[in-house]
Design a binder for these strands. Structure first.
Lengths: 225, 225, 225, 225
DNA sequence: TATGAATGAGTCTTCATTCAT
DNA sequence: AATGAATGAAGACTCATTCAT
């Protein structure tokens, strides 16, 4: 499962055999473009990104971008899919089902927190998508195909917790997920304005640890019977 | 602050479509441009916004935008200041000091929640600013001048609560504010992607009420002694 | 009335007062662009024409083309309208109604012949339009608004001729117009291939006079009772 | 001439869609490309035609076009030669010499009329060539090699007719051919603009028959002693 | 105070064509 | 005989901005 606020598990495709590394190496070329496109789109947004700027970063010419992706928009969609898809790679490692409910929630929250903290690119592209009203997410079948097991996992934990009497009954997994995600996401997405207005350096390690603990405790208190 | 009061002074025209600028009414022309600029920047972002698009909405020509604002960037900054100013100017009317701590927190959280819910424009412009690393917020003296009484108010409530034994001691107002803000903001800023991925209509009234109650309860539980 | 095969009378708009001849002279600039656009489109066709090529010919930059015409396509449409419209300027000078039927036909045919001979640009743009299936003519309200009095004039001559017994009855003005136009047009439009294949210089003055006489005689013989 | 016979040799596939090229069948691949090139050039003109568009229609990649034809221009020339060759190859089968002069003219005119009516592709490519000032026709030795027996046939008929006293003496075969061709060609080449301006559907069967009769009668009257 | 006209510098995209096997 | 990968050059078009009154 993925702990991303909006994404979840899908088995990682068995590694494609690496292509021969000759001069003409379409997969490498394509991948190369995509990597630089991520940087550009994440930094500049969709409207702000410049195809020329991406081209300048890669050895192959700008023409290749159109050869492989057809348009700036399509390239953006693939960047979106890649960043959403990357999230899948850290899945199924939490073994939440094996932990007691409280421990499971703690691990889940901490994982979500760390995940957003480490994937600023993802947080930024999601913000960008929301500025565009999620138009491209809605259009992407690939993203739709990434099924979200997070809600199932969370739901299962809540059920067990209620059964054991440590959590309240009647809690909605989606609501709890929203509570967790909002904090983990916002802390990254809005660090610039929040940091500036309130003069706080959110990425600072000790502050970060304090906030990590805060969201854990906050969620657990909310769930408690 | 001057900015805030200046802009707040201009009464919000109720349901009246912004008037086209007329001859010899510089105030009105300027205000008119700003209004349409808000729409454009909020919808399209900074890079996506088009000076032409703003000009098309107003009667006066595009030339006027430069006459009054000098550049697209400056216009954006004024949009930013206006939206920030609108928000801050209503924060002082809650009379939180007169309420018992728990009630005060509840009112503060509900106010924050409703405020974000009602001011989608503000939420969007803040997201946009973060995409730009808060570059323009940092640059704006006007925004810096808007002192945030919210932290003082919140700090005071927490102090009273701790004194009365209803809240834990040692809580940081900034952290609590982050906890509240993140939920209220994210729920609006990410409604498009979150809604699409999890197939939920966050603005729906009954869902909204449920979430409003959730964040209140969540915060209060977190604060409880 | 116009003798063009496909066009006809509409009163010439009373000359617009000439604009002041300052540096900024929009009408002149616009007209200037249009003139050079005619050259380019007529020589290269719609697809073959280059906006850059037009820009190079005029003093104002390429940017002006878009300022005044919005797009290459729109510029083409205006070229089309201009060339169709220019034809109107030679109208109503034939006084066909005052001539005996045979003389009237002769004058009409000769005028049509000369008209096409002199207006190669028009002939070419019409050929180009047909390659594009008259798509732009169909789209142009201006061209549609140019009502064709030619058919009325021709019909009137045929009626008089039939009445006087010099022409057959039952002739259709449109058919006769097609007969006349086809020769006058083709002689110009196809001079390159026809001339090359049959090794004849159609624009040659003596050949031209011979053909002018031929189409006159041919039409008159066709009409004769 | 060689071109003509070679191409004529390939039987016209009746209603069978052109086959995709297969491995190891160069003749077929080449022919296939040419067929699709005809469609593209005839529809779009020389400048408007896209090598990519042709490639999309055939199974073999765009690379094959260059493999077999070297350049877009050369491909166009071969399209030109093929369409010219198709036309000329059917002109010799009328056995005009065996008919009385009037009958021979009638058959010739009707044949010319039907021929243009049926070969819109040819009419279009000739129009396109004229837009390009017959540059490629002039360059093509193959087209030059297609000797025009039409003038000889026509000349012979005119001579016989004059001898028999049914036709005037002193008529030039080339002029008469121009008279016939212009009508038959224009009716097809300009059907779009003429049809639009005068609101007539030239391809309509009954109108077509009327015009077929008209050009016959018109020519015969012109020739009559 | 106000504005119509003009524009240099990009910006995305497409074109016919060649490289390298 | 065949082809997947690559591309320089140009294509149409747009952008925020300034000129000149």
């Amino acid at each position: 499962m993925t702990m991303t606020s909006e994404l979840s598990a899908a088995p990682v495709l068995p590694a494609v055999e690496p292509r021969k590394s000759r001069k003409n190496n379409p997969e490498k070329t394509r991948e190369n473009i995509l990597q630089e496109a991520i940087v550009e789109f994440v930094q500049q947004g969709l409207s702000g990104a410049r195809v020329d700027a991406i081209a300048e970063r890669i050895h192959t010419s700008k023409r290749m971008i159109y050869y492989y992706f057809g348009s700036k928009e399509q390239l953006y969609v693939e960047v979106l899919e890649k960043l959403y898809g990357d999230i899948r790679s850290t899945e199924n490692r939490l073994h939440l089902a094996e932990l007691p409910p409280v421990e499971a929630i703690r691990r889940l929250v901490e994982f979500t927190f760390d995940h957003h903290d480490r994937n600023v690119d993802f947080v930024r592209i999601v913000s960008i998508e929301n500025i565009h009203n999620a138009e491209y997410v809605k259009r992407s079948d690939a993203i739709k195909a990434m099924n979200n097991t997070i809600l199932d996992s969370l739901g299962e934990i809540l059920r067990r917790g209620a059964e054991e009497g440590v959590f309240r009954a009647g809690l909605d997994a989606l609501d709890v997920h929203l509570l967790i995600s909002s904090f983990c996401f916002y802390r990254v997405s809005n660090r610039h304005t929040f940091g500036e207005i309130f003069q706080i350096d959110l990425p600072d390690e000790s502050i970060k640890q304090r906030h990590r603990e805060m969201i854990c405790e906050s969620v657990l208190r909310y769930l408690q019977a």
